[in-house]
Amino acid sequence: MQSPDRGFLAGLVALARARVEFILVGVGGINFYAADASRAVETQDLDVLLAPRVEVLHSALAALAGAGFVFQAGGEPFLDVADEAALGSVLARGATIQARDETGAQLDLMTSGLALRFEDLARDAVSFRIGDVDVRVGRLEKLLRAKELAGRPKDLEFLRLYAARLREQTEGS
C-alpha cells in the first residue's frame, strides 16, 4: 500500500505546509472536480503553477527536496536549487522544473504557461482541503481553456473525452 508520506500527496502537502504560493492546473487540477475516483482521469504527473517569483521557486524546491524529490530542467539534473541567479533565469525563460521522487511521482513546477497566468488564475481559484492543509485549484473553465489553447492532439482528445463523460454524468443524474 502507498505510504502516505510519498508520492503526489506528500509533494503537495510539503508545498502547502511551506506556504508556497501555487495553483494546481492541468488534468491533475481538473480531477479535483471529479465526483469520485471512477470519474477521475489517469495522469502521470501533476502540474503546479507557481507564483512567478524567485523566493517562491526557492521555497518550492526546498520544500520538495525535504520531501525526497529531486529536480530536472530541460532533461538535465537541476542542482542550483538555492542559486538565485539560476532561479531567476528559470523564471525569465518561463521554464518548467520537474520534481520527481523515488516512487516516480512527478510534479511539474511551472513558472508560466499558455493561458495560465498566475494572477489570472489566483483571482478566483478554488480552495480545497488535503488533510490539514489547503491547496488552490484553478477554476475548471480556465483549466479547460488552457487545454484548448495548448492545442496538442492529446489535449483536444482530452476535451472530447471529458465532454462525453460530463454529458453522461449529467444525463445520469
Binding site: 503526489f8 472536480y33 471529479a34 475516483a37 477521475a40 480545497f128 491547496v135
Partner: peptide
C-alpha cells in the same frame, strides 16, 4: 463546479490517493 462535492473547503485527499494509485 456547482455540485456539493466541489464546495470550497471540501477535503480532496482522495484525489491524490487515487492519482498515486493510478500511477
Amino acid at each position: 463546479e456547482a455540485q456539493p462535492w466541489n464546495r470550497p473547503g471540501t477535503d480532496k485527499t482522495w484525489v491524490l490517493r487515487c492519482a498515486d494509485a493510478f500511477r
